[in-house]
Write a protein that binds this DNA or RNA. Sequence first.
DNA 1: GCTTGACTCTGTAGTCACTACAGCCTTTAT
DNA 2: ATAAAGGCTGTAGTGACTACAGAGTCAAGC
Lengths: 144, 144
Amino acid sequence: MAQTMDEFTIGALSENTGVKIETIRYYEKSGIMPNPPRSAGGFRMYREEHLNRLRFIRRCRQLGFSMAEIEGLLGLVDDHGYTCSEVRSLTMEHADMVKQKIKDLKRLEKTLRSIASQCTGKEVPDCPIIDALQDPNDRLALQS
Amino acid sequence: MAQTMDEFTIGALSENTGVKIETIRYYEKSGIMPNPPRSAGGFRMYREEHLNRLRFIRRCRQLGFSMAEIEGLLGLVDDHGYTCSEVRSLTMEHADMVKQKIKDLKRLEKTLRSIASQCTGKEVPDCPIIDALQDPNDRLALQS
DNA sequence: GCTTGACTCTGTAGTCACTACAGCCTTTAT
DNA sequence: ATAAAGGCTGTAGTGACTACAGAGTCAAGC
């Protein structure tokens, strides 16, 4: 494979970013990675710009942005030029969503530990968890 | 629809549990809800036992159990009889997973706020978030 | 008894963000 | 010249639903 200084195949791109080959092709198909030029034989040939873009995408995913949100961010960069404040507000919005999710999960953990603590731990087929889960009243409704 | 005291259609079951009709049918197809008896015309006719089971499933889902985990819990109840300690250990295991997820999300939120705080907020196309996200070095790697 | 309208039926396809595979082709090294 | 490694397309599967389309069923009012 003709790997010059500045052109490389999908495998190298994958290695350098930690994003699987199939996932890169999936990103291309769904439009957030561009169609790269091809070699004579049809291999995708990438350059540094692709590397940066894919790193950007990977980090956004690690940060929990959905692909639609990433498209939004990339749209700012690609099309109209962007302003720092636009990007910041998207990021803060996302941080708020994460905060809410943490809150929900904390409530959830509390509920789980609380019902588990009601267990006798005995080897008998009689468990407050099972009972509570089948209860018509919402005894287990997630409490704050 | 012949709604006697103790038999009701899928619509009523849905109303009483807050689980959508399509979802109930999906649960049936995937085996965690039983095939209910049918009316002469083919309508599913449910009884209180179904109501309890569906409530159980719904709460487990709200508590973040996967369908496979719920199958495990229901298996304990359905088949072999279960012991309180079995159920408790499944629940605690799940609580630990939730705890880990909270930890991850906290790290995530911290990172998001930290990169947003580097923003000037100016109306200029020059943003540390975008820069950082395209950075070859892992400046944004999720820090603890 | 008939019509109306609300309800239910099955089956298929779409969602999100990938992942896995089959069967073939290209590139590079020996 | 050939073998090994890597790449290609296209399709299907994951989990937990959701959204139809087109047909059939039920209860109530007239």
